[in-house]
Design a protein around this nucleic acid. Structure first.
Length: 248
DNA sequence: AAGGGAGCCAACCGCTTATTA
DNA sequence: TTAATAAGCGGTTGGCTCCCT
């Protein structure tokens, strides 16, 4: 059995939105807010799929959208974020107020990719096109136990099945090192430790300070305002604080 | 002026993840 | 615990516009 369709295809419009449809959708959301997308089209008197309404609102009608050309600062921020996050457009968009994931994705594919190529940088790996790739091992391990009361992972306790499940969910190898030709890093992610200062590890004469928050450090949101440092990469399964990522 | 190709972007599709019963 | 459903996400497509020949 396949998934049931999100809407009745036979009675829905497709393709470009008309002015009237836009007005209806905008008026409805202004009056009732963003609620259940599935039931919205009927309630708003639109012959559209809920999914289509959601997309139209998020990508085009939302009043807080910036629109217009990307600034040089936005360009550089997108490049930085992409080098850290890859094609996680929604996460990148979250750091660029007024921009949507779709807009950034399109902009990346049409402008930035070419811009990087012209600089001799591979847009996928963010390394020089002519650079030789070295081999890399990435090992991610959790040494923590899940505290069900506090809903947090606690360090310095034996690894639990839940911690192992997260490793599995991240698809980073079930304990086996992941070979990645594009990075020369060995990473070790451990759970957050609120009172602890950011970890700085030095090895082979190279110090890596990693008290990093995307919002604060990359300039998206002023520190202390709306910054939610603890929701690292949107991972909700466990509270992974980027401050606790150790690099060696 | 017309035809064709390239670029751009809105919208769709299908998959994954989260939530609910 | 499991299945069904809803929402979210990223890749892809299709159509419009612009530019070049």
């Amino acid at each position: 059995m396949g998934r049931s369709p999100c809407c009745e295809k036979a009675h829905t419009n497709k393709g470009a939105w008309t002015k009237e449809e836009d007005d209806r959708l905008t008026a409805y959301i202004k009056a009732h807010g963003e609620g259940c997308w599935r039931s919205l089209p009927k309630a708003a008197g639109l012959l559209r799929c809920g999914k289509s309404c959601r997309l139209r609102w998020i990508n085009y009608l939302r009043p807080d959208l910036k629109r217009g050309n990307f600034s040089e600062e936005e360009d550089e921020l997108i490049i930085k974020l992409h080098s850290l996050l890859g094609n996680k457009w929604s996460l990148i968009a979250g750091r660029l107020p007024g921009r949507t994931d779709n807009e950034i994705k399109n902009y990346w594919n049409t402008h930035i990719r070419r811009k990087l190529m012209s600089r001799g940088i591979d847009p996928v790996t963010h390394r020089g096109i002519n650079e030789q790739h070295g081999s890399t091992n990435i090992t991610i391990s959790f040494e923590a136990a899940w505290d069900d009361k506090a809903k947090v992972f606690r360090r310095d306790e034996p690894t639990t099945t839940k911690a192992a499940a997260i490793t599995h969910q991240m698809e980073w190898g079930q304990g086996k090192p992941l070979k990645c030709p594009d990075l020369n890093l060995e990473l070790c992610i451990s759970p957050p430790f609120p009172e602890e200062k950011p970890v700085v590890k030095r090895e082979a004469g190279v110090g890596v300070g990693v008290g990093v928050c995307f919002s604060c450090s990359l300039g998206g949101i002023p520190k202390g305002s709306d910054c939610k440092c603890s929701s690292f990469l949107g991972l909700r399964t466990a509270m992974l604080d980027f401050r606790s990522i150790e690099m060696k």
